[in-house]
Design a protein around this nucleic acid. Structure first.
Length: 675
DNA sequence: GTTAGGG
DNA sequence: CCCTAAC
């Protein structure tokens, strides 16, 4: 069975949630939190997009989660500098050919400088980050170390690396959890990455704009289609085979570690973490891998697809303070897998929620919950290495990106796979929403979008190293200008497509409505249409600054895992579209009309009230009227000092009380008579 | 599609 | 205003 998918990616705005008013009410706070969540989702989406792009570019993508808590900085620089080598080594060691890695680093520190090349600040915490999220629990690491690794650990801390591998088919075939105690220098270096890297196979670059107060994500764009770096020389073909030989632990399933799973208590303890990663792995790896494969297959057919510009990595930086994920969100993360597990995901999509990875703990008792107050803060150092390319085009590459802190709460009994997925989700959440891209040059923001690259000083001859991209919340209603800027500045730049959002939708359904959708479009909308899918409505309303289409082949018969990997599109689409209506306070006149109508018609006949008194007010639904009456009654019962907003004449409120009492009485009588 | 209520 | 259960 073959079906085509059209992938659509949109770069939407990102709106920073308004600051929550001071504890006005739990409700307001909750709303605010939801908005924050939405933003996080946006961020996550972005990440997913990137990851997806990476995966699309090459097959056999691998995602690695390294949970080492080691914070030795000495290795960081080295690692970054030698990222390619390191990864390469790692990959080869594992027998996998990961072409792409994308690493999420969580860090608790805000490192203003991240330049791979220079690493002015050796203390980059980039690496510490995930640790906080993923490994904040030492137990996990310890357990892993004890159980999975045999041996050597640095400072007693081990690194757990899990890789999601894609076989030639493009599906995630094997996932490996590896724990090594620094058998090699290279590995050590890798371990230092405390994050979930999705390797793109290139050096890492970090760029941050110290001057910028707003937390932003730094992005390096690479329009170089081909993956550079360590990938070269590693035969992909060997990849699948190599997996089998992987020294470490391999799992077939999210839930289980076939290889290393030791039902020991210790293992259990760290389990939760693992499962998360799994999800990430699956989601990204399989989805993207599939996409990659598909795209690969059909790339020829699709004229629209332009491989010319790819975003390798994003550097996402945000202040930790902003990234607190509300409890609700955390909850969502936990439950998401479960809830999703049963949900079918459209084949067209990328995200697929597979098994109930989390089910075991969701069901109830989650004895131990790991919570990271500062979630994934993945920072990354990104160096944007700008490469020269032919013609007058400037090639840019995104080396890495950083994800701000997240809240992750997962039961200790969760599997590593669950952990991975959770992390992925969290990241997705962060990147999922609308974001805007900023361009920085030599540490300064380039705000004039109208300037050309050359005018700005970005040219083949310039130091592209000082060029950076930032992802920042978009407060503006539309990102169009951003997009435009993007295209104008970086002609070849292409925003990756990512299907991740859908996954989020399911989980965070409640939050989605909070998104200022129209004002902000989603950063990465990924739309996939397969043969039987209907055109997505979502897209129409949003501007598409960039769209890629690809015809993709999908393997007809997929195991559950594969299915699980399929993205959920339909739902997401819907969610995307749904926008919360703007608040339109009732005027005194409207209240008057409402009161009058209710006096006449009574409560419980809201449709009639609507027709009678608000028939011409299309924005007032009968539900609105009902709600307003509810609030009116409440307002009338409270003291005037407690009332807010436009003051409703007390006389009117009195009528409200009278009418309410009258009709309530009527209602009671009716019920009594019937009885 | 409406209602009723909780959020 | 949103979301949903219950009609």
């Amino acid at each position: 069975m073959v079906f085509q998918k059209s992938l659509e990616y949109r770069f939407n705005g990102y709106q920073v949630p308004a600051t929550a008013r001071r504890a006005r009410s739990t409700r307001r706070r909750a709303k605010f939190q939801r908005r924050v969540e939405d933003n996080q989702i946006c961020a996550f989406e972005l990440l997913a997009t990137i990851a997806g792009k990476l995966l699309q570019e090459k097959e056999n993508p691998t995602m690695t989660i390294d949970t080492s808590s080691e914070k030795d900085q000495s290795g960081s620089v080295k690692e970054c500098q030698n990222a390619n080598k390191l990864f390469k080594a790692e990959l080869s060691d594992e027998g996998s050919c990961d072409n792409k890695c994308f690493s999420l680093l969580s860090s608790q520190t805000n490192n203003p400088n991240c330049c791979l090349s220079e690493f002015p600040n050796p203390e980059i915490d980039v690496y510490s980050g995930i640790a906080s999220i993923v490994t904040s629990s030492n137990s996990l690491e310890r357990v892993v170390a004890d159980k999975l690794v045999d041996g050597k650990s640095q400072d007693g801390m081990e690194n757990v690396t899990s890789n999601a591998k894609l076989d030639s088919t493009g599906y995630a075939e094997v996932s490996c959890c590896k724990l090594d105690g620094d058998t090699s220098e290279v590995k050590d270096e890798l371990h230092k990455f405390q994050n979930v890297p999705i390797e793109s196979g290139t050096e890492m670059c970090c760029f941050e704009d110290p001057l910028d107060e707003n937390p932003t994500a730094l992005i390096n764009l690479d329009d170089n289609v081909k993956l550079s770096g360590y990938n070269d020389g590693i035969p992909c073909s060997s990849f699948s085979k190599g997996c089998g030989n992987v020294p470490v632990v391999s799992r077939d399933d999210d839930e289980k570690f076939s290889g290393c799973s030791n039902p020991c208590t210790k293992t259990k303890s760290f389990r939760p973490i693992t499962s998360v990663g799994d999800r990430v792995r699956k989601t990204l790896a399989s989805k993207y891998s599939k996409v990659a494969q598909e795209s690969k297959v059909h790339s020829n057919n699709d004229g629209d697809f332009k491989p010319t510009f790819h975003i390798k990595k994003y550097c996402y930086k945000r202040q930790r303070s902003q990234m607190n994920i509300p409890l609700k969100k955390r909850k969502l993360f936990n439950c998401s897998s479960v809830s999703n597990s049963n949900k079918f995901i459209r084949s067209g999509g990328i995200y697929h929620s597979p098994e109930n990875d989390m089910s075991h703990y969701t069901s109830g008792s989650s004895p131990g919950r790991m919570r990271k107050d500062h979630g994934i803060d993945s920072l990354e150092r990104c160096q944007h290495s700008a490469l020269q390319c032919g013609g007058s085009h400037v090639k840019l590459r995104i080396r890495s990106f950083r994800v701000p802190e997240l809240f992750i709460e997962i039961p200790e009994t969760a599997t590593i796979g669950s952990l991975k997925r959770t992390v992925l989700d969290a990241v997705t959440a962060i990147l999922g929403g609308g974001l805007r891209v900023g361009v920085s040059l030599q540490g300064k923001k380039v705000r004039d979008d109208s300037k050309t690259l050359i005018q700005t000083g970005i040219s083949l001859d310039s130091h592209l190293g000082s060029l950076g991209f930032t992802l920042e919340p978009n407060s503006s209603p539309s990102l169009l200008h951003l997009c435009a800027a993007h295209s104008s500045h970086v002609p070849s730049a292409e925003i990756p497509q990512s299907p991740i959002r859908p996954a989020i939708h399911q989980r965070v359904q409640g939050s989605l409505d909070m998104l200022p959708d129209h004002q902000v479009t989603n950063f990465g909308n990924f739309v996939v249409n397969d043969h039987d899918s209907t055109p997505s409505p979502i897209n129409t309303s949003v501007d598409k600054s960039r769209t890629d289409s690809k015809a993709l082949d999908t393997v007809p018969e997929m195991g559950e895992d594969e299915l699980a990997m399929v993205p959920v599109l339909q739902k997401s689409k819907r969610s995307e579209i749904v926008q919360r209506r703007i608040r339109r306070p009732f005027s005194v006149e409207e209240v008057e009309a409402l009161v009058h109508a209710v006096e006449k018609l009574g409560t419980g006949r809201w449709r009639d009230v609507k027709v009678c008194a608000f028939d011409n007010a299309k924005h007032r639904t009968y539900v609105d009227l009902k709600d307003k009456w509810k609030t009116l009654v409440h307002t009338a019962r409270i003291s005037p000092q407690q009332r807010r907003g436009e003051q409703v004449p007390q006389q009117l409120l009195n009528r409200v009380l009278i009418a309410h009492a009258y009709w309530s009485q009527q209602q009671n009588q009716e019920t009594n008579t019937t009885l």
